[in-house]
Design a protein around this nucleic acid. Structure first.
Lengths: 356, 356
DNA sequence: TTGTAAGCGTTATCAC
DNA sequence: GTGATAACGCTTACAA
């Protein structure tokens, strides 16, 4: 701040420093009230003369007056900020969600305080409290996802919250996620239609609702096509390259091995590819593969990968929309209990071989 | 807030609602001052009795008292927030930077207000002003990168700013980026050592300093090996798949075509791969390729891609460190004029064929 | 059509 | 050892 003053007075001796609304008021010989009204678009309401309006706006621009949102927030009990907590903001899937959230929030005049929970339940809890102490107007959480107790507690205390991605099956907290069940169902159904009968599944964390729904979709697709669910063909326990790699080896040692695999995350898929390469077996020939999560590179793999694409940018946007309903209707129930499932798209490329 | 009160009084009739430090003060029959001191670790300094300390801390915990950081910010002229503006937060490269920034900021008690400038100069400007109105303690900018005028102006007015990634060659603003020159130089040098003599380069935006430095490194590596710089082999103008695709076609129509290509971004590389596939020419055989930006999938491409890896997580962390120096030494020059270049790593895989 | 003054929840200063 | 009070910069009820 001191630097600032020096600088400005150097540039123009006659221009006084305008740090706040009162400084501006003094210069213009009007009250802070008037300035506040003009700058907040309430000029008409208070029938402030055109002349005064212009004087105020010109001076504000000329002196680079930026209203202090901190002071405003304190007075108004509204900070125009929302908190976003995600398990891993470097993961492209979440990065896209955060972009969706950011752009939609910005559109409605809100800024984003971004937090990375590092997939750690206790960090998540701390971050929620931190955001609360910043008096954010609401919070969007992509939860770590094993325990929703604390989040529910906060939600029930009246803080607007929306969940994204990993949403519990039943909750009052408004939430938006992909229709993971349908995504897996469609993929497996497609494989069956191409003549596959022994279809394996490599899972992520079994205790995540997203994973659970996908496995359910996988099983139901088999059942509805009169195919047996073989427990030996359901393997894996984490959304990592290592997990994909390890379990691909396990699957290929089964006799006879499955002819097709559905991978429940893109990292698992990378592990599968690594193992396949080592074993010198080729995707789309010796075995077929469909992967959750469309990525920029999916079409450039060899062969181009058939994927289940999630609308994650829209997920972020919708989360903001739901949250704003809550923020704008503090007293009413807003979007309580609302649960949105976004359709997934099966992007068909060349990684599933035709068997019939 | 109303919901909250109802809820809490429902749970426990006798527990009064604690919204602020004064509520707590009344309950405990101590002054707000004392509470503030205890909760801010100044108990020793003011010789507050152990007994009082314990009473205060217990009560704060029991009533879930979360000090209002907004009010604190107003009083202290310090919000414990930093702003981060990036051109595209969904781009994995920037997503990793933001993760580095988030974790390092958090480590020092700062939270992050994240902004996406959408690679738009005027949005960037607006966002800077917005962050200023939120009274952030400092700003980290991954600039759009063509004009640094406005940013310099703000910096010179005394606002702590650090630039990441696209940093002008000469500037007073502290900045941290990859050593793009060295990255390209090493890659081209490696290709030459493998016997390549006609090496092409597909550029990103020519007016970006990052791109400029990479091209310089490319040219110098050729020159220092007594190879001619052939202008026809330097093509492209944007970091997009389309640009890579289009210019790969152009390069392959040159007679004779280059035996090797350095791609200045991973999106360009994806375009190159697409074009190569169409033309049925194979990386690592008909032509060799090195790509800027190591990605999770680089090793899974066919063949595994030799890449120039940037330390972008560290970039984010260092940016925070530089910024904090400035924030903590408002009056001194802090890290003014400091420019850090992070070494890149050439990750050698199989996309460069040996010619000799 | 404009202004005065109180108050949002903190913390620094000064007092005891 | 602890507390009363003012002030941070804004908005709003009330006045004029």
């Amino acid at each position: 701040m001191k630097n600032r003053q020096q600088q400005e007075s150097k540039n123009n001796e006659s221009q006084p420093v305008v740090k706040n609304i009162n400084d501006l008021a003094k210069i213009l010989n009007v009250s802070a009230t008037t300035i506040s009204r003009v700058l907040n678009g309430k000029a008409e309401k208070f029938r402030i003369s055109k002349k005064t309006q212009i004087i105020v706006m010109d001076a504000a621009a000329k002196h680079n007056y930026l209203a202090n949102k901190i002071a405003r927030g304190l007075k108004m009990d509204r900070t125009d900020t929302i908190g976003l907590i995600l398990p891993d903001i470097s993961y492209p899937f979440f990065a896209v969600i955060s972009q969706g959230v950011e752009s939609e929030a910005r559109k409605f005049g809100f800024s984003l305080i971004l937090c990375d929970s590092d997939d750690d339940e206790s960090k998540e809890k701390e971050l929620i409290n931190l955001l609360l102490s910043y008096r954010v107007d609401g919070i969007i959480i992509g939860p770590v996802g094993k325990d929703y107790e604390f989040i529910s507690h906060i939600y029930n205390s009246g803080i607007p919250i929306v969940l994204v991605d990993r949403c519990p099956t039943v909750t009052e907290i408004p939430n938006v996620s992909s229709d993971n069940y349908q995504g897996a169902y469609d993929a497996v159904n497609y494989m069956i239609s191409r003549g596959h009968k022994r279809i394996a599944c490599i899972e992520g964390s079994p205790d995540l609702p997203t994973n659970y729904d996908r496995v359910r979709g996988y099983k139901d697709a088999l059942k509805n096509n009169n195919l047996q669910v073989d427990k030996n063909l359901i393997v894996g326990n984490y959304h990592s390259i290592e997990n994909g790699y390890k379990n691909m080896h396990i699957l290929m040692n089964i006799d006879p091995p499955p002819s097709a695999i559905i991978s429940l995350s893109n990292r698992i898929t990378l592990g599968i590819l690594k193992a396949a390469k080592e074993k010198r077996i080729t995707v789309g020939r010796e075995f077929s593969l469909i992967s959750f999560d469309e990525q920029l590179y999916s079409q450039f793999l060899e062969p181009p990968m058939t994927t289940i694409s999630q609308k994650n940018r829209e997920m972020g946007q919708l989360a903001v929309d739901l949250l704003l309903r809550n923020i704008n209707n503090r007293n009413e129930s807003g979007s309580k209990g609302l649960s949105m499932k976004l359709k997934t798209d099966l992007i068909i490329r060349e990684s599933v071989r035709r068997m019939i």
